[in-house]
Design a protein around this nucleic acid. Sequence first.
DNA 1: TTTTAGCACTCTTGTCGCCTGAGTGCTAAT
DNA 2: ATTAGCACTCAGGCGACAAGAGTGCTAAAA
Lengths: 353, 353
Amino acid sequence: MSLDRRKTTHTQIEITERQQQVLRLIVREHVSNGRPVGSKFLAERYSIGYSAATIRNEMAELEAAGFVDHLHTSGGRVPTDAGYRYFVGHLMDDIDLPAGDQIMIRHQFRQAETKLDDWPELAASVLAEIAGNVSVVTSPRADTARIRHLELISLQPQLALLILVTRESTVRQSMVHLPAAVEQVDLRVLAGQLSADLAGRSAQEVRTQVVGSTPLAAAVVEQIIETLRQIDSPDQISIRSKGLQNIVGQPGIEDDDVHAVLQLVQGGAFLNAILPQVESGDRVQVFIGRDELPDQLQRFGVIVATYGVDDNVKGLIGVLGPTRMSYWRTISTVRYMSRLISDLVADLYPAAG
Amino acid sequence: MSLDRRKTTHTQIEITERQQQVLRLIVREHVSNGRPVGSKFLAERYSIGYSAATIRNEMAELEAAGFVDHLHTSGGRVPTDAGYRYFVGHLMDDIDLPAGDQIMIRHQFRQAETKLDDWPELAASVLAEIAGNVSVVTSPRADTARIRHLELISLQPQLALLILVTRESTVRQSMVHLPAAVEQVDLRVLAGQLSADLAGRSAQEVRTQVVGSTPLAAAVVEQIIETLRQIDSPDQISIRSKGLQNIVGQPGIEDDDVHAVLQLVQGGAFLNAILPQVESGDRVQVFIGRDELPDQLQRFGVIVATYGVDDNVKGLIGVLGPTRMSYWRTISTVRYMSRLISDLVADLYPAAG
DNA sequence: TTTTAGCACTCTTGTCGCCTGAGTGCTAAT
DNA sequence: ATTAGCACTCAGGCGACAAGAGTGCTAAAA
């Protein structure tokens, strides 16, 4: 699992070694301070062999190349989106997450096994805390859901609760209105029968199969199909997000930006916006600002990885933060957690292969 | 189901009819504009029989009574928390939600039946949209969870998935590490047996009962108890919240306030903070600002109702917004939705009585 | 040819003073 | 009891001003 560098590789603009160094310092400094960084400042703070004037010249070149910008004639340089991309693609030490963080993550994530229903929520919490930004985790999904098991529980004479377990261990409940009053014992028998008949089948396959010998069975099967279709529906992907508080009050992030993020993340539109761009595979992908993210997220960067097994059961895990964020730390955190989750999922969904 | 007025009734400070009218106008105007409201303004805008000077005198009285305040010598009056409380308790038309909103809510909430797993999330979405503020919905909980049914599914030779359904239709999954390799058929038998033996029992009762004739059964029962205890644990209440974007950019709400809300709501601390104050029953309760909410929520108001059946299965639904919010609208919305949810829950959990 | 020192210029940020508008409190008249 | 009038106060907007930081350019030094 290595970093995806294709995004930046094709914008291959030549840059001298020293310009790279300057860009690296600008990014680093601006990420930690949030303020524009000037030549004098760099020359004084870091005792590199060059003077402020030299740095100024290099900065001018970097600006011509589109990697930095300055808003006012006299206001220090700020990395552009392209600058951040170059930094991520070429200037970043691609080292692993510090052992301390790894231990902390594993420790916190251990309770996922016993609190299995909501491990995405737990993962989101852990990720948000370690990365110090907004985390996003989707529940795992198969290409097409297949039935593993189902239960029927009588609620009222003509109303039953259907519990459907897929091969990927997704559990869904829904109500079934029954055409006639039915006893719990009869529901149990029906559920056992349907479980046996339909095990391993998808929505499509359930539909085409001859079923519904009785009105009762027909009603149940109808609901089963509806539930499976809901699971398969791409706009029903459940998304968990934590750490939203981390983006308020950041320099460069306005109320409008916060508003946009909250709206997108809570409404699910966020997923629709970035999902098409994500390619499954073993890479951590980085999207930065304008041209790589929707308009409302111009001031943000997104770091995502897919997790899962076998290209079948898979999901998404990522971090959203201001463009001005610590990329190497976030990237290594996301990478580490996606591995961890893949392991969990592999345990959970062995039948998916 | 009527409004809870006790909170304000005991601070019975005498106030003339006209002062009430002035207070009502101040609240109304400040809620809609967000700006402090002055005597001249009121006199001109509303053609009541009194002059600006009279209103000024009344305002002075209201201020002495602690219902309004002015930050600067010359900056119009603003309702205090006590002022809002008086308004909610005495000056508000306690009418029902407009029919249009009722229809819209019912319409949107209809899909809850088929998307049953996450109806709290759906409810939170609807509530946030209608109320235009932050919504909060907890999943329903019984005093003590009791087993209705359980399933065991083989994941690996020594690893199984336990699916536990409580009488309140809560479904939980967890992993069980088995002391030896076990086939799916045997797990099925064991699950059926335990289902029959333990149906209707709580964590306590499962524990005290003589069980675990075999190491395998013992391992499973151990996990069952652990899961039940988790369900019973008060700090594991799952909470859904939507509409967080609605509080950013509001006049009077600073970044710090937004930060606090996001932190409290996402971390679950919000629930711990207000839950002790909520009394179950048929009333909508209102908590406003300082003295009724935690320090970080000084600038907010919370409107909550409990839903559920029989004092047994119950949950919470509420709205969080700036003190400067439309109380009558929010209160009637919360009241209406809590009724709707109670109906849903009554269908879902008939066995709970 | 590359690097650097120096200098003039620009632009932000903070501060001060000024003015205006809105609102108050008080007093005297109705 | 109500109202008109008046002096007073304060926030917010505006311009002037100085300080600080940073730039671009040019000429000298390496």
